[in-house]
């Protein structure tokens, strides 16, 4: 069972960062996954007093505060306008509305969970993580980094006129995905992310010039490694990745 000795609602990021340098302490997002662990924690660090629960839009980018909930990105009209339904599609299968009202974007990104739909979706876009000390780094780089004691402050998504689409297959509608695929394109430059392999999501970039959707999908799916768990075998996942990448490419207008 999860336990903790103290709870501090911090007044500044500096305070959060300082508290977080102690290994026993932990920053709480929505607590969805944290409380299922058996960890005995020292201090729970709460960022909810810092106004980081807003989605801000500028000419160039969206800035999503780490304490924004999954439900917020699901319903945000700006994200919807800019990227079609990709955010909504990537999170709407996650357990239920109550869960998505609790789970935070910062928690999902920091956790870099293998099953993460959010990470998969964001990786297919031009996304950056803003760390309190580490500054702004590309999400792909962050995803590969070891876990550090820095604080995820914001997620930045560039408005680069990219079209994107998302698909997942699940054994039940609200289960973790067997496979999760996010595909985006800007002209014929493609960015393809595959999650729930079941390792954490990764992405690749491909030039689609002269390739059919089938060829693109075959090439892309072969770039990832796949593993087995309760929800599916490595072989099946490899097959599904190719199928869904192809379907998404077609959805984004790639000819057969």
């Amino acid at each position: 069972m999860f336990s903790a000795r103290e709870y501090v609602k911090v007044n500044s990021l500096e305070e959060a960062w300082e508290l977080n340098q102690k290994r026993a302490n932990v920053i709480a997002g929505g607590m969805m996954w944290l409380k299922m662990g058996n960890g005995q924690k020292g201090t729970i660090i709460d960022l909810s007093g810092l106004g980081l629960d807003q989605i801000e839009e500028s000419e160039e980018e969206f800035s999503v505060g780490c304490m924004c909930t999954l439900r917020q990105i699901e319903l945000d009209p700006g994200l919807e306008r800019e990227f079609g339904g990709v955010f909504r599609e990537s999170v709407r299968h996650i357990v239920g509305v109550q869960f998505r009202n609790g789970a935070t974007v910062g928690g999902s990104v920091y956790g870099r969970y293998g099953f993460s739909d959010v990470l998969t979706c964001l990786l297919a876009l031009d996304t950056y993580v803003e760390l309190y000390k580490g500054g702004r780094i590309p999400l792909g780089e962050f995803a590969r980094m070891p876990y550090t004691r820095d604080v995820v402050v914001k997620i930045i998504v560039k408005k680069d006129k990219r079209q994107a689409a998302y698909a997942s297959q699940r054994n039940t509608k609200t289960d973790f995905p067997v496979i999760a695929c996010a595909v985006s394109r800007k002209a014929d430059s493609w960015r393809i992310a595959v999650g729930a392999r079941p390792e954490k999501a990764e992405y690749i970039c491909l030039d689609g010039t002269g390739k059919t959707a089938e060829e693109l999908a075959r090439e892309a799916a072969a770039c990832f490694s796949y593993g087995s768990n309760l929800r599916g075998s490595a072989e099946y996942r490899a097959h599904l990745a190719e199928v869904y990448i192809r379907r998404l490419a077609k959805e984004l207008g790639k000819e057969a």
Binding site: K9, G30, M31, M32, S48, Q98, F99, N101, G102
Partner: peptide, 20 residues
């Protein structure tokens, strides 16, 4: 399920401290 500031959340996954 309870409401926190009017929104439905899972009280099993929310710390009471968050309700302050």
């Amino acid at each position: 399920t309870v409401w926190l500031d009017g929104k439905p959340v899972l009280s099993c996954s929310t710390l009471a401290a968050r309700a302050d």
